[in-house]
Design a protein around this nucleic acid. Structure first.
Length: 701
RNA sequence: GGAUCGUUAGCUCAGCGGUAGAGCACUUCAUUCACAUUGAAGGGGUCGUAGGUUCAAAUCCUACACGAUCCACCA
């Protein structure tokens, strides 16, 4: 036994042993099932500290293994459609290429290979963190059987009228070349000029004068006396490419106090105007293309990017005397692409939408009735807020990397049909002139099905029934609306059961000063570096020790060092007991001993209390507190007090004392094992046979 | 505009109704005896402010201040 605990000597070896002996494998048994589906990391990059937070799941998993439940922790990888394509395009760019240099099939294949390499790497990193994942059952969001299920769900939703195709305004990033759902838009405050321009008989304020070419109406508030006489009339507007006529409509959404109380309505390029247009039957006139440039309807402005066009329009309006005044530095919020940061252009586009309301309403009931429990409690309110506020979900993405939408367009009847298997002939007209939608699904559409899709495609028939609903969904609170809410909606819709009984949310790992870690800030800490330097246990403990469930946690190397020291302490406590037992090995044959000394009684009593508290905390998801309890007990009570007090006795050959210490120590190893699997396993093996494992022990009873 | 979190020792944070805690940092001492990735002792806080509830409040309630985060179609 070395005087220092050396993680490098045990981690890889023990993990291999666990995996090879099948300790992580779940099967159907008569035991109580406990299951967690690992949130599948994106198979496009190294793990970051956020992924290391899944250690919370390993804590639950190993704890339940020690309670001797039938435990499943199912790993997977996410193809992460748009995210991955974005990463890959960056790589292409570094090679002096772009996605436009390849055809669809080639690009897809290249990304496939890229993802497979990264996936292997990512999985190895999960192993290095010590995660007790059932690798035999690993799934990928693009496995054929998963795609089949995703297609089934799509078809069922379509057949039941919950998916529709419509030309609506969508959030479109002209740089990334795809539309997004509402959640992928990040609203940022910025200062722009507010232009007051002459508009027929009115003056109105706008931040986007270049959209004037797409105006098809003018709106005022119905109660606004100033403009009452115009309502319903057609007015002639002096434009930059000639005069045009628009109808004046009265709409509640217009705030009479803002600007002049008059709004130009551009239904094709503004969400609010789109709705106004719908209410008053105003036509849509698209003047901006998907390339971000003005189109031919704008005459001489055609081909200009929106920004350039705005400058030119402003100059020309001034020249024509149509610009009345400009208020600089007007503060407002603009939607930007969450990925590239550029301004999102609302554009009309035909896409597939999920009618979310019915799904969200039933999901809300489940959460309210606590058929799904949320920890920490405060997130229940937030989840319900989201379920109340979801709008229809655009699931079409104009990217190559993803699950191709199984929708086909019949050219002769001009209708769409859905087919789970690639159709041989058109389902509508029976001929062969149909084409498949070019688009792929929003990744979250497949992710939303992950709990049931995985369990339906691993193991034998009853596997699903045995482990579903899963016990806990554990993930970061930042993806509550993206993922958790949608899993509840789609999971319940498909299986008529909740996908998980409990949601447990952890906080975000931040840097020492509480800032978000990001490459651009240069404050990123690589979890694998921490494992290399201090061992996986130290890293794991540092992510749990002293953190409050659901709160963000600052992370810094000193914290890991502190935990490394604790791990070493745990090791050396064992070493002390071990060495003394070797010395006294003849006497140990005397099996019976009783705890006559008062201090031994005190020790046993204190340990009993510790364990009772520990079990309560673990069952109540208070992992940080449970760990704090063991830390305090093992170090400051057991080592600093009891061992010191009993040292003399032990050295004088008091077998009772020595064996009492051993018993309490080994029990504490079990209790610590969920948090620090490696050092506890190593310690266990010292006192037991080399091929024994702490994972096979029982914590209760 | 709505919502959530935070404000406790120099730093980072636990505690959340009953004599102020941890880690790191700091001071002094110890050290062939499991561990210097150690031990012992110590300094350091009127627990953001103001009210309220209670025998008792860092802990519950109500305001307010400051900080952070999420959400919202002011053209």
């Amino acid at each position: 036994m070395d005087s220092k605990y050396q993680p490098q000597l045990v981690e890889e070896k023990n993990y291999q042993e666990w995996e090879e002996k099948g300790f992580f494998e779940a099967k159907i048994s008569n035991k109580k099932p406990f299951s967690i589906i690992l949130p599948p990391p994106n198979a496009n990059a190294d793990l970051h500290l956020g992924h290391a937070m899944y250690v919370v799941e390993d804590v639950m998993i190993r704890y339940h293994k020690l309670l001797r439940d039938e435990v499943l922790w199912l790993p997977g990888a996410d193809h992460a459609g748009f995210e991955t394509q974005f990463v890959f395009e960056k790589y292409l760019k570094s090679q002096g290429k772009s996605r436009f240099d390849f055809n669809r099939e080639t690009l897809y294949q290249m990304i496939w290979n890229f993802v497979m390499d990264n996936r292997q790497n990512m999985e190895d990193q999960l192993r290095r963190l010590g995660f007790a994942l059932d690798w035999q059952k690993k799934k990928f969001t693009m496995d054929k059987d998963i795609i089949k299920i995703v297609y089934d769900t799509f078809k069922k939703l379509y057949d039941q009228g919950l998916i529709y195709r419509a030309k609506k305004l969508v959030n479109y990033c002209t740089f990334c070349g795809t539309s997004f759902s509402d959640l992928e838009v990040v609203y940022k405050e910025r200062k722009d000029p507010l232009f007051y321009m002459k508009y027929g008989p009115f003056t109105l304020a706008t931040t986007r004068p270049e959209t004037k070419f797409g105006d098809t109406g003018v709106a005022v508030n119905p109660k606004d006396k100033r403009y009452k006489k115009w309502v319903g009339q057609e007015v002639e507007i002096e434009g930059l490419i000639g005069k045009f006529k628009v109808r004046v409509v009265a709409d509640e959404s217009v705030d009479p106090k803002f600007g002049t109380g008059v709004v130009k309505v551009t239904p094709a390029h503004d969400f609010s105007d789109f709705e106004t247009g719908q209410r008053h039957n105003l036509p849509m006139k698209q003047i901006i293309g998907y390339d971000g440039k003005l189109n031919k309807l704008t005459g001489p402005y055609q081909g200009l990017y929106v920004n350039e066009a705005r400058k030119k329009v402003v100059e020309d309006l001034k020249a024509k005397g149509l610009m009345i005044k400009i208020k600089e530095d007007y503060k407002h919020r603009v939607g930007t692409c969450y990925k590239c940061g550029r301004i999102i252009e609302p554009l009309p586009k035909e896409q597939w939408f999920i009618k979310v309301r019915p799904l969200a309403d039933s999901a809300k009931k489940l959460v309210e009735k606590e058929e799904i429990k949320i920890y920490p409690k405060r997130f229940k309110k937030i989840l319900i807020w989201w379920l109340d506020n979801f709008r229809d979900w655009n699931i079409s993405r104009q990217i190559v990397w993803g699950i191709r939408i199984p929708a086909y367009f019949c050219q002769s009847k001009e209708k769409w049909f859905i087919a789970v298997e690639p159709p041989v002939q058109c389902n509508i007209c029976g001929k062969k002139d149909f084409i498949q939608d070019e688009d792929t699904f929003d990744t979250w559409f497949s992710s939303a099905q992950w709990p049931f899709a995985t369990l339906m495609t691993v193991g034998k028939n009853n596997f699903f029934n045995y482990f579903y609903p899963t016990s806990v969904m554990e993930t970061g609170y930042d993806i509550l609306p993206w993922w958790v809410a949608r899993m509840i909606m789609i999971g319940y819709y498909t299986t008529k059961k909740v996908p998980f009984k409990t949601v447990f949310l952890h906080g975000l790992v931040r840097d020492r000063s509480g800032k978000k870690m990001s490459k651009s800030k240069g404050n990123v800490i690589n979890p694998m570096d921490m494992v290399d330097k201090y061992g996986a246990d130290a890293l794991r403990l540092s992510l749990i020790f002293g953190t409050k469930e659901g709160n963000d946690l600052p992370f810094f190397e000193n914290k890991v060092i502190g935990m490394r020291n604790f791990v070493n302490k745990v090791w050396n406590i064992g070493r002390f007991i071990f060495i003394n037992r070797q010395v006294k090995s003849e006497k140990l044959k005397v099996k019976s001993y009783n705890s006559k000394l008062k201090i031994i009684k005190d020790l046993n009593k204190e340990f009993k209390e510790e364990k009772k508290k520990y079990l309560k905390m673990m069952d109540g998801y208070r992992f940080s507190q449970a760990l704090g309890l063991i830390y305090e007990f093992l170090w400051h009570r057991f080592a600093d007090y009891y061992i010191e007090q009993l040292k003399g006795e032990v050295i004088n050959g008091n077998i009772e004392a020595l064996e009492s210490l051993k018993e309490v120590y080994l029990e504490n190893l079990k209790m610590l094992h969920p948090f620090a699997p490696f050092v506890t396993e190593a310690g266990w093996k010292v006192f037991n046979k080399e091929n024994s494992s702490i994972l096979l022990e029982r914590l209760k009873g």
